[in-house]
Amino acid sequence: MTEKIARLRFELLHIEPCIWRSVEVSLKTNLRSLHELIQAVMPWEGYHLYEFTIGERAYGEPDPEDAAWGRKTYQAKGMQLGKLIERSIIELLYTYDFGDNWQHRIVVEHVEDADPATDYPRFVAGERTAPPEDVGGPSGFMEFTKAIANRRHPQHKEMVRWYGGPFHPTDFGKAEVAARVRVIAARRKIALEAFARSQQLRQP
């Protein structure tokens, strides 16, 4: 059976101009793997909590303390993208870092047969640089961009020192992002090949 893939678009909400990425992924991709992919393409650094919201359900990394707050978080690795699409769910919300509250709109643009010569996931396109970690959410990011772009701004030197250099809002490092995704694709290929060999060894 030919593998199916989906083209996804990630958009960072509450910021203009729009910061977005487009990728192609297997329908077998679970939400934890999708989280790792989003981290790679924005890129974020991955040291904060995350959550996918689908209807009234939240998927992430369950915490025993959730019950005390009257909420339930389902295992992200337990839900595959293909299962959501089968239910006609083609849009979901991904939140990273509950302090800065970076909300991403994820849209399934289309589904098609995979190219046998291509390793997935695959980075397709994108625009603009994502905010740095811990910048203070959308409002903090707006203040950061104003300060770092204006040498006369009273916080310019402080922001350059904090960020570690100049900030390029339009150059998000496309080649580096594509390379990060190729690493994920290579790991997935190795895992799939190992699984196929294990299945062959089980055959009588």
Rank of each mutant, 00 (worst) to 15 (best):
20 W>A: 10
94 Y>N: 11
100 D>E: 03
38 I>N: 12
91 E>Y: 09
56 E>K: 10
71 R>T: 05
70 G>F: 07
125 A>H: 07
6 A>V: 08
196 A>W: 04
76 A>E: 08
59 Y>V: 07
2 T>A: 13
166 P>Y: 13
83 K>R: 13
92 L>M: 15
98 F>A: 07
13 L>E: 11
40 A>L: 01
28 K>E: 14
8 L>S: 15
54 I>D: 05
112 E>I: 07
36 E>K: 15
164 G>T: 04
88 S>C: 09
77 K>C: 08
37 L>T: 02
47 Y>W: 07
170 T>G: 02
91 E>L: 03
156 H>M: 13
152 R>H: 11
3 E>A: 13
186 A>R: 10
195 F>S: 10
126 G>N: 10
39 Q>G: 11
2 T>P: 13
15 I>F: 00
97 D>I: 06
73 T>F: 01
124 V>G: 02
163 Y>A: 01
91 E>Q: 15
175 A>T: 13
11 E>H: 05
159 M>L: 08
185 A>Y: 09
105 R>T: 06
191 A>L: 04
123 F>L: 04
103 Q>A: 03
53 T>K: 10
198 S>A: 14
155 Q>R: 15
117 A>Q: 10
6 A>K: 04
136 G>W: 07
1 M>F: 08
103 Q>M: 05
121 P>S: 00
90 I>P: 00
194 A>E: 15
188 R>Q: 15
42 M>L: 07
123 F>R: 02
184 I>Y: 07
116 P>F: 13
34 L>V: 14
88 S>I: 08
196 A>Q: 11
94 Y>E: 11
5 I>E: 00
47 Y>A: 02
118 T>E: 06
121 P>E: 00
74 Y>K: 07
154 P>N: 05
66 D>M: 06
134 D>K: 09
141 F>W: 03
120 Y>E: 05
29 T>F: 01
67 A>Y: 10
17 P>Q: 04
110 H>F: 14
107 V>H: 11
167 F>Y: 15
130 A>V: 04
35 H>S: 05
55 G>H: 13
151 R>S: 09
177 V>Q: 02
28 K>L: 08
165 G>N: 04
199 Q>H: 07
176 E>H: 06
134 D>M: 03
